[in-house]
Design a protein around this nucleic acid. Sequence first.
DNA 1: CGCCACCCATGACAAAGGTCACTTGCCAAA
DNA 2: TTTGGCAAGTGACCTTTGTCATGGGTGGCG
Lengths: 196, 196
Amino acid sequence: MIRVMLTDDQNIVLQGIATLLELSEQIEVVGRADSGEACLEQLAAGLRPDVILLDIHMPGMKGMDALREIQANYRIPVIFLTTFDDAYLRQQGAELGAKGLLLKNIALEELVDAISRVAAGANLLNTADLPHTEHMTPRENLIARALAEGRTNKEIARLQNLSPGTVKNYTSNLFSKLGVRNRAEAIVRLKELGLF
Amino acid sequence: MIRVMLTDDQNIVLQGIATLLELSEQIEVVGRADSGEACLEQLAAGLRPDVILLDIHMPGMKGMDALREIQANYRIPVIFLTTFDDAYLRQQGAELGAKGLLLKNIALEELVDAISRVAAGANLLNTADLPHTEHMTPRENLIARALAEGRTNKEIARLQNLSPGTVKNYTSNLFSKLGVRNRAEAIVRLKELGLF
DNA sequence: CGCCACCCATGACAAAGGTCACTTGCCAAA
DNA sequence: TTTGGCAAGTGACCTTTGTCATGGGTGGCG
């Protein structure tokens, strides 16, 4: 039996997937968390699953943030669950050490199969054959977050103690890294990625 | 036994919730669809559930679109499943005839309870005590859709054979109806509502 | 009929957004 | 120690966006 921990902010989804996994008879759900924070708490309390399934898109701490923390403190393989497949997410996830990225519209058998393979040490996100994606610097990350909330440049400048011109430079860089033309498209893209 | 049809684009979520409902012993899941289109097809093929559970946020046909179609052709009560509670969704849903709006982070018992009550004829969305929300005209709806894709005013004008100035007027009206200041916030809001 | 909601449009104006070139300071790797 | 990347900033310049006033046209409804 593979011991799995599941994290998803939507309770009914969390319980639903957990029940499905239990039914597979190959997997035991030993932990359920409804936020990145709750997931980390349970790990801090001593829970040691074989694999962690992590939803990317959650209010508060995002999947990526949680992944960073988990990688920094534990040696437990993490698989992302998300709505959209995306080169950017694969890249970011792989760099941070995630072992897989699975779509939520997947069949149960495929999910179980992927979990088994990762539990056995496999890495389903092979960095080698990923296309190169420029990743964000920490500052850009902050800017991106504010952008994804619909903030204006002026507001972002005030909130982060920068000059408005500087903010424009950052957003401008972000756009080219995201492959978009303006902030509207950037927001759509960021939401699509489930990053913020 | 209450005969329920479930619609959600994410297969693992669809199967998960279905399994949970089945386990409740009070509900029988007689139909599963992974899109609004698929839901309507099954109804057209003669399926007649007692209640339809509909995810609002789906690629392609949205929950609201599906609801419109269902109301136009059948007399089956519809309950929305969504991530965010929101006055706007309640208002729109209620006007189109939905009987309930439930958050996905809800306990199973509450979900079962709500389904039972709606199956028994209850309306959990009482129009009377809803705050008045201005709703979009058909044209505004088209504009909103394009807006939510990150289109510029010029593009929208070209795509819909309007003058750029006209588009600005529509977007401007939209912003005030949505209670936002600019297109960035509008996109955030529309995504939040799961409308596009 | 008159009223209203919706549709479409224009022009003017101010504010916000986006690009570019160029500068400075820091820190880390070669 | 030189080189290079990153953070941070400035100013110029142009485009896009948003608001407002104002004008028509249509079609339904009391």
